[in-house]
Amino acid sequence: MKFPDLHATLFWVLASATALSAISVVLTQNIVRSAVWLLFSLAGTAGIFFLVGADFVAATQLIVYVGGTLVLVIFGVMLTAQGPFISMKTSAAEWAFSVVAGLVFLGVLLVTVTQGKWVGHFAAVSPAESTSAVALGESLLGIADATPPAQLIGTAAPDQPLPRTRMSYLLPFEIVSVHLLVVLIGAAYLARAKRRRGAAA
């Protein structure tokens, strides 16, 4: 096992950066700095995606989240930030309660994670050989053969493996496209300059 060393190092670096940035998002009071920590957290997540061979998802994460959504968020902050509102204080009691509740929640999740028995094998995929983009594209085009032929695991009768149903995702893709169009119109409608409001009222 020579390759996993590099993988493990990269994982620890990226994971600690991502997690620490996420914690900083919560702890920072200044909303713009929060957004910066969110940037690092999202970029770290993209790095994690690259690490597990999902390069197309990682690039999408960067271009949509970091280049689009986060810029939009910062834009919103700049438009709505007026001196005193940039940092809105949360009271100590609220903090204490949230932290306790959050730690309990984290504990429950971690116990669930460690109790789960996943049947998993490790396989390294180098970015050049990763064909996830091709498989994704074919699957979104409605080609069911794009999903790999595999057998279901963790079924009730492990000695009689079942072939999995091969799916394609053309319909969800179209629905998401229409959804985005609706959102485009909706956001433009909501955020438009209201000139008639004063005259009507």
């Binding site: 940037l39 197309f56 690039a59 999408t60 960067l62 271009i63 689009g68 983009a133």
Partner: peptide
Amino acid sequence: FYMLAVMST
């Protein structure tokens, strides 16, 4: 796609 994504940051 990667290059466009990174340059958008």
